[in-house]
Design a protein around this nucleic acid. Structure first.
Lengths: 203, 203, 203, 203
DNA sequence: CATGAATGAGTCTTCATTCAT
DNA sequence: TATGAATGAAGACTCATTCAT
């Protein structure tokens, strides 16, 4: 329990520092200071600086995935699910900007090195969206020729780029809600079989 | 001229090494070796390691932008332009994977630090797509409520994520051409006013 | 008594660990684990890691010296005493290899630092041999020109080097008994006045 | 040539510092300062701190062995060779005390770790003495039952212990020359077939 | 212009020691 | 007494950058 706390405290500190400086420019001693522990204490909980980043990814991605799955379970309509997916994912940026920045920036950065560690969860996350499309296809809502392997990446990339803009932007012209709506409506209409605009509440 | 050559040789070497190791794990001495120059020579052409990356971005992005603009100038139809945009951008990955990897991975990585240097060209690139949408809106093809600021990022993000997958993937299930087609059709149909599927040659 | 036990337990553990890793590469925590006590407990019995080594030397050397003196007290003949000295000292290696290794290797290593702490007992040990020579000189057996200060070190060094070989060697071509015999016979004959080979049982 | 110089300069500095502090307490930065080079320069010439010690051993032992072989080549008589061996080896201590201390103290210290690196030359050195004995046995001077494997170690150990005393002692009661003489005469007489004292010049 | 040997600031990590429980 | 989590000082090593040639 106490030990769990310190583990979390260090992860939280790391998120802050990585977001502020980036992984390579972050100093272990700075994470320690931010976590209010001694430098050496870090190494009681993590094998190395790399290990902090990896653990951070695994743990936070797990939460994000679980949170998304829970959130979507409440919706039945694939179209509503897509809307929910977009707003959920983008609102994460609002709620936890530091984490968003780390996931956005650092996840990409060490791709080759890190992808081994987060690939599974990254895929699991993408496949949530793939399932929605498949569902929509089975229900005759979405076109059969939509390739889920491509569409899931396109949708995630669209949201991600928008999130990146939002996190890094200082002006923030577009609200998160509006962004989520625009992107989901483009994809919904873009994938639909008949050319009716996305049904249900459009806002 | 001779001087120009060496500048290029170093940039080319840096693209290779950054792609292979990532910016932070790349050694200046390794770039020098790859470029067949002495370590010190690098500093006759660039102020610092950072400066190599910045110059690399500016020069290569300039080429990409010009190439894209030229390519699109041949098309009149906004819908065809979108298709062209997607295939042009994605085929870049095929033609120059190392550069793609650097732009994909490293551009993101140092976002805050780098954004100052590449923001303008990044925006210029995005705005090419924004102009296409606007054109389409003016021609009554695309919905008026499409926010070009959001849509341009969504489209770019979708292509980029797909490109990242393609660059980093070892299996590459989805062909570049198919990916470009799927993504552009989703966006075209997703943004269209009336519900006709994208006209013109769909495949 | 209980306290005495723990002191010993730690010394014994230290002997094992120092033998295995060497003083500098031994970890206090490893000694603690080997002794089945907590890290902090070590510091209830010893001032520092150095202090463990010093205490170890003092206590074990005391035992060795007393044991040697006792053993030699049974012999009257200086020549027999030399033989006994050699076999006693070398057989120590067989009986307690870990201790032998620590004394052999670590004693030397920290010479300057340690000499202050073990010098007295080291000298006492050497002087046991010096006394034997003196005895032999007084009995007219050994040459008068033998310098006991030199001879005692030469004899000790000869045994020690042989012991080191035996402890570190994996093949061990020469038996401890044969080594003791060869060395003592060389010294006996080498120091004798008249040229009779060492009298008494030569084997 | 220039590079050779710096290599030597660092080795010489290391000998001084290792002698003064011992290997583990020596700081790489101190070696650098002693050698008048920057810390990083050390690593242009040696892979690691360990590598400095290993290189030092290999190079200096090579010199010692060659010097000894040369020196002995001038002598024909095995008995004179033993006298020469002793005086040569011990006078090394006088001439290069720092080196002697490093070889004496540090060679022993990291025995298991280091023996792999110096074993061959250590054996080569020991075998010089073994050859002398064998020669003497062939000439009928030394007893046949002298085991050269044991005697070479005994002789080396005797000299070494005496050398250690001389290097570490502050009072130095026994002169190097006298020590060499005493030890060689004990071994010569101790190994001789007939019991005549060492013939030839006893001094 | 070109070289590449030299520099030395900078950081992760280890581990003897402490101390609250 | 005993514990073992926490401490933080210390050091080997790296590598971007410089500069004498």
């Amino acid at each position: 329990m106490k030990s769990e706390d310190k583990h979390r405290k260090i992860i939280q500190a790391a998120i802050k520092v990585f977001a502020r400086k980036g992984f390579y420019n972050a100093r272990v001693s700075e994470i320690a200071r931010e976590a209010n522990v001694a430098d050496g204490t870090i190494y009681l909980y993590f094998k190395s600086k790399d290990d902090i980043l990896i653990s951070l990814f695994e743990e936070e991605m797990r939460k994000i995935i679980n949170n998304m799955k829970e959130d979507l379970a409440k919706q039945k309509d694939p179209i509503e699910k897509i809307r929910k997916f977009a707003s959920n994912h983008l609102s994460l940026m609002t709620r936890n900007q530091d984490l968003a920045e780390v996931l956005q920036v650092e996840l990409r950065q060490s791709s080759k090195f890190m992808r081994d560690y987060v690939k599974d969860q990254y895929m699991e996350f993408l496949n949530i969206f793939a399932s929605i499309i498949k569902e929509g296809q089975e229900q005759g809502i979405f076109r059969e020729d939509i390739n889920t392997g491509i569409a899931k990446r396109a949708f995630f990339g669209a949201l991600d780029e928008m999130g990146r803009y939002w996190v890094l932007s200082t002006t923030r012209k577009h609200s998160i809600a509006e962004s989520a709506k625009q992107i989901s409506e483009i994809f919904i209409q873009g994938m639909m079989k008949n050319a009716t605009k996305g049904k249900g509440k459009t806002a």
